[in-house]
């Protein structure tokens, strides 16, 4: 497993698409805060939006799976995973006696490692550039904020593990770059749109109504909008359950089903 993981990691790092993803991570991190600053200055909204736009919201916004790097990177990584099939190099692994389960897990772990590290770097760069123009938050930064930040980062990483599991599942079973890109885009846009619709609906609903609870639950399960992560100052036990439930189920389901289907699949 270790040998395969190292091989897959090297393969991703040597691919030009990884370089593109790394450059985009830097570019998006610089552009987003800069554009916001320019836009707010030009429209003279700085005083009006004082406290609403801050480095904290930009930092957590950098993790959104439907936006910027959060949308582009899984696609780039899925293309790299697909290349193992299109180049036929996956055959070398099978012929050398590696099990298909281990090959699938290695694809997942290498994709997840690269995705998590790049997303983290992107978000930290976004935070660094944002702090040049905006305060971290309107309140004073305390140790409890630091704890909240670290816990939020852990949740974001779990979300990206789930996205890596989806990407590995689609790429390994479709083995086709075109299909893989289309499926991921459809999934990403579909869940982002559904998330937006439910968030809008939630804003109009009476908080005491039973419908609000249902909408809130559906919103929380949709990790493509990650509405609960980084949006407050503390997490309740219910928040943690809602945040972790769907990513963990997604990881477990994608890996179990993916390994099962991949083990039975004929390869060319």
């Amino acid at each position: 497993m270790r040998n395969l993981y190292i091989t897959d990691l090297k393969r991703i790092l040597k691919d030009k698409l990884f370089l593109i993803a790394a450059i985009l991570a830097g570019v998006f991190a610089l552009i987003n805060p800069l554009l916001n600053k320019i836009l707010f200055s030009a429209l003279e909204l700085e005083d009006f939006l004082d406290g609403m736009m801050n480095a904290k919201s930009m930092f957590f916004g950098a993790f959104l799976p439907g936006d910027n790097l959060g949308l582009v990177m899984p696609i780039l990584i899925s293309i790299i995973v697909c290349k193992d099939f299109s180049h036929g190099t996956v055959r070398n692994k099978i012929i050398s006696g590696k099990s298909r389960g281990v090959i699938f897990l290695s694809h997942f772990l290498s994709s997840a490692s690269v995705m998590c590290v790049l997303m983290l770097a992107h978000a930290l760069l976004t935070l660094a550039f944002s702090l040049c123009f905006f305060p971290y938050q309107s309140e004073k930064f305390t140790m409890s904020d630091f704890g909240y930040l670290l816990l939020s980062l852990l949740f974001e990483m779990i979300v990206y593990l789930a996205i890596a599991a989806i990407v590995t599942f689609i790429a390994t079973l479709s083995k086709n770059m075109g299909i893989c890109i289309l499926l991921y885009l459809a999934l990403s846009f579909g869940l982002s749109i559904i998330g937006s619709v439910f968030m809008t609906a939630g804003a109009f609903l009476d908080k005491s109504s039973s419908w609000f609870g249902i909408v809130e639950f559906i919103n929380a399960l949709n990790f493509f909008t990650s509405s609960l992560i980084g949006s407050g100052v503390t997490y309740t036990a219910k928040d943690v359950l809602y945040i972790l439930l769907s990513p963990i189920l997604t990881i477990a389901g994608s890996l179990a089903l993916g390994i099962h289907l991949f083990s039975r699949k004929d390869l060319k």
């Binding site: 040998n3 190292i6 091989t7 393969r11 691919d15 180049h87 190099t89």
Partner: peptide, 30 residues
């Protein structure tokens, strides 16, 4: 199978890597 070496249809090589890197990748797998 670990005692077998094979080329099935076309050589399974990483097209975006050099000959040296391709061999190093195979070494890494093995």
């Amino acid at each position: 199978r670990a005692r077998v070496g094979a080329i099935v249809e076309a050589p399974s090589i990483y097209m975006n890597l050099s000959a040296q890197d391709n061999l190093k990748m195979q070494c890494s797998i093995l």
